[in-house]
């Protein structure tokens, strides 16, 4: 009887061996699927990066003050260095001044003018072919704390940055806001020491290190 059971168990085991082998061997299919999925994701990421690069190159702007002028091209000085801009018959020109807009031409551009050019940039040499050129005095955005006030001129210490003198004059739009977003009119007396303020200003042509404010917003906590 003992040998009968032994032989029976042995034969049973041998017959079921292929089943055990299949069940215990992980299929390669999920791994293959995972690898294919990773490749597809990598491809999508590469395409997304390329599209972003192309978009950035296709619709870029250069902003700065005009250095030299040629017949149909010019150079401007930007925070990233000197940039070349070429124009053609399709380029449009506008001048924005005191809230009004007027059309102009390439001949209306002078050395020292502030402008922003919109166009496509040649990735080989960085030269832009401008679609539109807008002449407008450059406006800067300042965020910081008042460290001094003197006759409407505030010294602003930017977050992690330098100190700048900004003139809050009669033409400046003065406002204050609460953390809840309630905005109301303000007066120069509201702009006290250690106040956090936000300013849009342009450089004083007589003293380029100082700025004249167009609008100033005071944060009331």
């Amino acid at each position: 009887m003992k040998s009968f059971l032994t032989i029976l168990a042995l034969c049973f085991t041998v017959s079921l061996a292929p089943v055990y082998a299949i069940v215990s061997t992980p299929s390669a299919a999920p791994a293959a699927t995972s690898a294919a999925s990773k490749k597809a994701q990598d491809l999508l990421d590469r395409v997304a990066t390329k599209v972003a690069e192309l978009t950035a190159n296709l619709r870029r702007t250069y902003s700065g003050s005009v250095g030299s002028l040629g017949k149909t091209s010019l150079t401007i000085t930007t925070p990233e260095g000197e940039k070349s801009i070429s124009t053609n018959e399709a380029t449009t020109y506008y001048r924005l001044k005191a809230g009004s807009r007027s059309e102009t031409a390439f001949t209306g551009i002078k050395a020292g003018d502030d402008l922003v050019a919109i166009g496509t940039i040649d990735p080989q040499n960085g030269e832009m072919t401008a679609k539109q050129i807008i002449l407008k005095i450059k406006r800067s955005n300042f965020v910081g704390t008042i460290t001094a006030v003197n006759n409407g001129i505030v010294t602003l210490k930017e977050l992690g940055g330098p100190q700048t003198q900004i003139d809050l004059n009669d033409a400046t739009s003065l406002k204050k806001t609460t953390l809840a977003g309630k905005v109301s009119a303000a007066t120069i007396s509201n702009f006290a020491l250690n106040s956090q303020i936000f300013v849009i200003a342009y450089a004083d042509s007589q003293k380029p290190t100082d700025f004249l404010a167009l609008k100033a917003l005071l944060l009331v906590r």
Partner: peptide, 20 residues
């Protein structure tokens, strides 16, 4: 007796494998 036992064991195993 042994031959019958082997046949029974193989048959039972193959039947279960076939079912699987």
């Amino acid at each position: 007796e042994k031959t019958i036992t082997i046949i029974i064991g193989l048959t039972a195993g193959l039947v279960l494998a076939g079912v699987y």
